[in-house]
Simulated scan of single mutants.
Amino acid sequence: MINIIVAGFKGKMGSTATKMVIENKDFSLVGVLDPYAKESNLNEMAEFSEIDVPVFNEKEALVQSVDADVWIDFTIPAVAYANTQFALENGIRPVVGTTGFSETEVKKLTDLSKDKKIGGLIAPNFAIGAVLMMQFSAKAAKYFPDVEIIEMHHDNKLDAPSGTAIKTAEMIYAERGDHQQGHPDEKESIPGARGADYKGMKIHSVRLPGLVAHQQVQFGSTGEGLTIRHDSYDRASFMTGVALGCEKVMELDELIYGLENLL
């Protein structure tokens, strides 16, 4: 049995993760964390009325009260780094779906995990289909080096571009390397019209109500085009990957970036 904490349990992703842990026969939910929660136990919430799990406002109090193997984090970018560092320092394996980490932050956390010999996972996207989309895109880039990424999310998402889009661009760059695309003399009549630039690739971020998580990787070549797209219509689509991450980190002795590295 794997003992699990969920940080950010009141958010949409955190709530979905909490339900997944409760329903998984191999997992035991030992505590949940939210700094603004008024409840002291999950059973005070209608949707968890039969679940006896303590609620904590402070992570320090949480680790003093419960014994956990895995820390699932679906919080916000402003606190996710500190939470992940705290989990590692306290011997808890982080499984992090919060995005917005910089390369420097990921390296610091990876180095810390190696020092502590504790496994962990930071995944920009936990949907298996999204991971395949990134892998297929990287493969396609060998033959279609001209590419743009359009990512679309709900209007409450705080970071842009999405972690998935950045990870996709990194994987494409690892395959195609430096490549000049588009007209070298193009001009934006409105700043930002061409989107963000990652090593020559353009990334466009859409934020609208009604969306969940969607990404389209569009390739163009002489006389043909290729579009690779993934859509998450429900947050439940991420839970297979989250559950897999919780199981796999128990076997690791360092933090891994990207679910694709565990498949």
Rank of each mutant, 00 (worst) to 15 (best):
G182H: 03
A130F: 10
K187I: 14
Q215L: 11
Q85G: 06
G163H: 01
G163C: 04
E23R: 15
F219I: 06
G129L: 07
C246H: 03
K25Y: 09
G210P: 01
M171T: 04
A165W: 08
L29C: 10
I228T: 03
G11H: 07
D111F: 04
V95I: 06
A213T: 06
Q85N: 12
N156V: 13
K38L: 13
I51T: 15
A196F: 15
A127H: 10
G14P: 00
A141V: 00
L88Q: 04
V79S: 15
E105Q: 15
A174F: 01
N156K: 14
V131H: 00
L112I: 01
L62F: 02
I92N: 04
D146T: 13
G11Q: 04
H214T: 14
N261V: 00
I128H: 08
K157C: 14
L33C: 07
F136P: 00
Q180W: 02
S232Y: 01
Q85C: 06
S237N: 14
V131Q: 09
P124Y: 07
E247R: 14
S28D: 11
K107L: 09
Y143C: 05
F48C: 05
D146K: 08
T16D: 09
R93I: 03
V79H: 09
Y173V: 02
G210A: 09
I92M: 02
N3L: 02
S49K: 11
K10Q: 15
D178W: 12
K167G: 05
L252P: 05
A46L: 11
T168E: 06
S65E: 11
F48K: 00
G225S: 10
E151Q: 09
K19F: 07
Q181G: 06
D159W: 12
E251F: 05
Q180C: 01
L132P: 05
G97C: 04
E148H: 13
T84K: 01
S137G: 08
K10L: 13
D26M: 11
D111P: 02
V70L: 07
D111M: 08
D67L: 11
L262G: 01
F48S: 06
K116H: 03
K10E: 14
Q181T: 07
F56H: 05
L88G: 06
T222K: 13
A193I: 09
A213D: 07
N57E: 05
D234Q: 12
H179A: 10
G177I: 03
T99R: 09
E151R: 03
F101A: 03
K157Y: 15
I72H: 03
M201L: 11
V249W: 00
F9W: 05
D159Q: 15
Y36S: 11
F126M: 13
D253W: 06
L158H: 05
D178Q: 11
E89I: 02
K167H: 13
F74N: 07
L121D: 02
Y36P: 00
D146H: 09
A123C: 10
Y198L: 05
A46E: 14
I128P: 06
T98P: 02
